[in-house]
Design a protein around this nucleic acid. Structure first.
Lengths: 244, 244
DNA sequence: CGCTAGCTTGACCGGACTCAAGTGGTGTGG
DNA sequence: CCACACCACTTGAGTCCGGTCAAGCTAGCG
């Protein structure tokens, strides 16, 4: 049971942000309580069903948002339909692209999810007023850049086996603690999505999963639920050397 | 011949920055003349020979720099020696990673080059004092992120032929105007580098170049010099659809 | 019960890799 | 000036990994 709330004239975060704030190593932690209140006036939460498009390729974007729950897949598609997932985003990542109203990718809910939306103009104004706010966004961009480049190594130079192991390792280390731990989790992506993320086909993904299972690195239940016996073994299968 | 310099008490950019400034759609254009003077006190230019390492993987970095001339390749290497180039940087790109003293990649001169170096602490201080400065860096990070993700599509989903065409298209559209134009340029990378950038082997790169040559898309002289007859043809071979 | 969607498995194929030899341009020493 | 070595690149032959195509399996659901 929560302690009784003493009224305080200023500097009290909006009710809706309270339980949320904890997770926010994310964006909102850059704001003071009064700034949060200001932002909160214009923001709204939204449930999104698995598979729904959040931002379309070439679409203009009117809102930014924070991911509260679930996983977003960012993907690019070629004219002939070939597709590549170029990033996954987890809570509490920020979703949206400052300084550019048009998206060059599609953002789609990989799972059922909940997001917190902010109108573009409000955020853009805050960007100019609160340097720490831009610092946070910059910092997330750099994190995404690192991840993208790590994945380029995976896409360009790893074998199918290593790719699949790398994916499992990525999920194991990024899973929302509420939904599993590093030894035991549900895959947020279908085989088709995994294939698009790894630059492989569904069949190859499936075969390599089977292989990892037979080698005792993982066990699989109901197609989606994965257990990892020793994470170190998975790292190794992924070709990740701990020294770096 | 330059016009004679009238002394002005303030607001005059350092001599060394003058000819440079023109190119700087880059970082320094975010600074006022007096800020430039301040930064310039601690900065120095440096020539780097082709193949030299600028920042090593896992090394700590004491300086940032601007690229004045030449091409930097950013690469990652696996424990067994497999290598992937994860980015190319051209003048006037900024080189270095704020908020993190240790690099997760190697930065190496792909060509002979010239850079302008700034001590880390001076830049970090300016980052805090000049919001526009951070805005610029943020903006470049976002540009690099877009490029990385575009390349992920290339690495994950394109054929060898399309990869090589994509590379040639990239160079054609990024080449320093002083060193060539979109129809006619020297490749800044060796076949080995191209292979590492595309996630292919040297042999495959070579074969696909030959194929593009025989199909009349390009002509090659002295291994390095490339002429493109119709850029549109190259785009097409690269699987790039103009609609996006 | 059968239908469908998502996944697995099998057989075969082909594109990119491997290994090896050949070519050409450049620098060096006799 | 030629002989030679060296390096970067090209070309060829054979192999293999991952793609393609097709069939089978399983769980959920009308």
């Amino acid at each position: 049971m929560d302690t009784y709330r003493k009224p305080q004239p200023e500097a009290e975060a909006p009710v809706v942000c309270r339980s949320c704030e904890a997770r926010h190593g994310g964006l909102c932690s850059a704001l003071t309580a009064s700034q949060l209140i200001e932002l909160n006036k214009h923001s709204f939460r939204k449930q999104i069903g698995c598979g729904n498009e959040v931002i379309g390729q070439g679409e203009s974007v009117g809102t930014y948002s924070n991911i509260l729950k679930g996983v977003i897949k960012l993907s690019k598609m070629m004219a002939d339909g070939r597709q590549q997932i170029v990033g996954l985003q987890f809570a509490p990542d920020f979703l949206g692209r400052p300084f550019q109203s048009e998206s060059t990718m599609t953002a789609e809910a990989a799972t059922d999810m909940e997001i917190c939306c902010f109108p573009r103009n409000v955020v853009d104004r805050m960007l100019n007023e609160v340097p720490e706010f831009e610092r946070r966004l910059h910092s997330q961009s750099l994190k995404e850049l690192d991840e993208a480049r790590d994945w380029m190594l995976t896409l360009g130079r790893k074998t199918a086996q290593e790719k699949v192991a790398s994916f499992l390792y990525l999920i194991a280390t990024h899973i929302d603690p509420e939904e599993g731990d590093q030894q035991n989790f549900d895959l947020p992506l279908s085989r088709a999505d995994i294939a698009d993320f790894l630059g492989l086909t569904i069949e190859t993904v499936s075969r390599q999963m089977t292989k990892l299972r037979k080698e005792g690195v993982i066990t699989i239940e109901n197609n989606r639920h994965v257990s990892v016996s020793r994470l170190e073994q998975l790292r190794q299968a992924a070709g990740i050397d701990s020294d770096w």
